[in-house]
């Protein structure tokens, strides 16, 4: 599952690593990772605690040197073109940290001073965008975690980035805030930016992202478009009716059915083809006098997929 067709105009990935490895002594926190983050999409980066997500981000950004492998950001090889690449990147690593004795606006001024004069001119606009204009004169020490997350995103936006790397941006944000952030991330993608979201909130990643990678124990387990990793299971429907056992017997020899199982009072029916077969199965059940109250394509959620992968690894190790 490595086919990721989304590329920018220049043909490069937003992030591309080849054999990226980061060792701490004998332990490989990141182990020969080949990651490809397409441009212009929201990309979810998933993994259990200690999987190596933050270490990989820190290595990509050059905050710690790689033990082996190569990194390119927006097509620019690292660390050779680090300055040019990072000028187009906004990042939150682990959690947004600030000088607590400074106000939100002053913290942005400090970051903008390092970025350059264009960034200084964006301070008010980014505060407005994350909804902190009214609280920008307050000390960050008085901010909630959710406000700090939003201020962190504002700091990322100071550079008008082509790529945002956000490590657990939903942490500490209330449901309404999560909804706002999700919408903001989609807006950022609509503007042509790439949003790289590292998170353990599988549901949020599934709702927000177009593509996803899963890491565990420092290794990249899978990556691909969200529809490839999670979503409808091909030619499989879930049927609810008033007599599942009789329905199972009826469909056992049906020519449109490849296989049928029951779970939690529902039939999981593998079809030989798509919609026509589903309609034929439904017709058969109705004509047999069964009350069919539920027919939908079977879906595998990102959470199912994630748990399947990580638990399989757990058994293997």
């Amino acid at each position: 599952m490595t086919t990721l067709p989304l590329r920018g105009d220049h043909g490069a990935f937003a992030i591309e690593t080849l054999g990226l490895t980061k060792r701490f002594g004998a332990r490989a926190a990141v182990d020969s990772v080949d990651l490809r983050v397409p441009t212009g999409c929201a990309f979810g980066f998933l993994g259990p605690n200690g999987a190596g997500k933050t270490t990989l981000i820190r290595t990509v950004l050059g905050l710690t040197p790689a033990s082996a492998g190569t990194v390119s950001i927006l097509g620019l090889p690292q660390p050779d073109q680090r300055v040019a690449a990072l000028a187009q990147v906004g990042a939150i690593i682990e959690e947004p940290r600030f000088h607590r004795h400074l106000t939100g606006r002053e913290n942005l001024a400090v970051a903008a001073a390092v970025r350059g004069p264009e960034a200084e001119g964006r301070i008010e606009a980014v505060l407005e965008r994350v909804g902190l204009s009214d609280r920008a004169a307050e000390r960050v020490g008085a901010y909630s975690m959710g406000m700090r997350q939003r201020l962190g995103i504002a700091r990322c936006l100071l550079s008008d980035p082509a790529l945002l790397i956000l490590d657990e941006p939903m942490n500490g944000v209330d449901p309404a805030g999560i909804h706002e952030l999700r919408r903001m991330f989609r807006d950022l993608v609509d503007e042509g930016r790439t949003v790289f979201l590292s998170s353990h909130l599988l549901d949020e990643i599934e709702k927000t992202c177009d593509a996803v990678a899963i890491v565990d124990q420092g290794r990249l387990i899978t990556q691909g478009l969200m529809s490839e990793v999670a979503g409808p299971v091909k030619n499989t429907v879930v049927i609810g009716c008033d007599d599942p056992e009789r329905a199972r017997i009826l469909l056992g020899n049906h020519r449109a059915v490849r296989g049928v199982t029951t779970a939690a009072g529902r039939l999981h029916v593998q079809l030989v083809s798509g919609n026509d077969a589903a309609a034929a199965v439904n017709r058969t059940l109705v004509e047999a006098g069964l009350a069919v109250f539920h027919v939908e394509p079977e879906r595998v959620s990102l959470e199912d997929r994630f748990l399947e992968i990580t638990s399989r690894l757990g058994v293997a190790s």
């Binding site: 680090r82 400090v110 390092v114």
Partner: peptide, 22 residues
């Protein structure tokens, strides 16, 4: 030690600005 203590040093480094300049 102010930037390190506040935890913002890594954010400043992640801008690409030279560490010696920081």
């Amino acid at each position: 030690a102010g930037d390190l203590g506040a935890g913002v040093f890594r954010d400043l480094v992640a801008t690409g600005r030279s560490r010696l300049a920081l």
